[in-house]
Amino acid sequence: MKVLVPVKRVIDYNVKARVKADGSGVDLANVKMSMNPFDEISVEQAVRMKEAGTATEIVIVSIGPAAAQETIRTALAMGGDRGILVKTDQTVEPLAVAKILKIITEQEGADIVILGKQAIDDDSNQTGQMLAALLGRSQATFASEVKIEGGKAEVTREVDGGLQTIRVNLPTVITVDLRLNEPRYASLPNIMKARKKPIDEKTPEDYGVDITPRLKVLKTTEPPVRTAGVKVESVQELVAKLRNEAGVI
């Protein structure tokens, strides 16, 4: 069974994001970039499936600038078999990503596509769902547990009210949530081995997909700065403030 794992190069989750002066977006100049943490979880899931004998080959895909090759290498070091880099310096929105992934999924004959439920840079949470729709396949989103058995996938989903377990037919698209697993760190021999694994280089044009943005960013703003607190002298004063100023009781 072939598994396709798309990965996105995003601003590192430890970096404090700064908004560009003109409000057009987040300043990415000289900022540490790494693999979207949800995508690390999907790579880990694919590798565990291969170790368990369910998956036979893991293909890693990334759509982005030349540097996204590094993100692919990281996924290969974790246990991916080979990579495909779809190179573009343009902004690629979820729909364009889904269209490219659809063609790659079909060309590769991948039975399962596992991807992060969202990327931490734009928090769109759209690509997996769009991909399943374009492919006409089942989808199992927000997975916190995945079992593959007899041509079906049993997926436990994290929903608002708790957990929901569904069974979907293969081929399918699975998006992963935070609690599915804890991604491994690739050790030195695996990093070295990954350097010798093949990565194909493509462009969006190779797939005949128009990636021109359809969304317009109107503005980007920093979160409001937290204001200083005050000290109260007594319980009575606290209650008064909660009632009259905060209006919470």
């Binding site: 990281t74 070091a77 760190y185 690739a186 050790s187 030195l188 021999p189 990093i191 070295m192 350097r195």
Partner: peptide, 21 residues
Amino acid sequence: IWQMTEDEMQKVGLPPPFWAF
């Protein structure tokens, strides 16, 4: 060194050590 991760190699300024194999 066998357990070194990519982040750790970057931190100490060690390029991928192809020479070590």
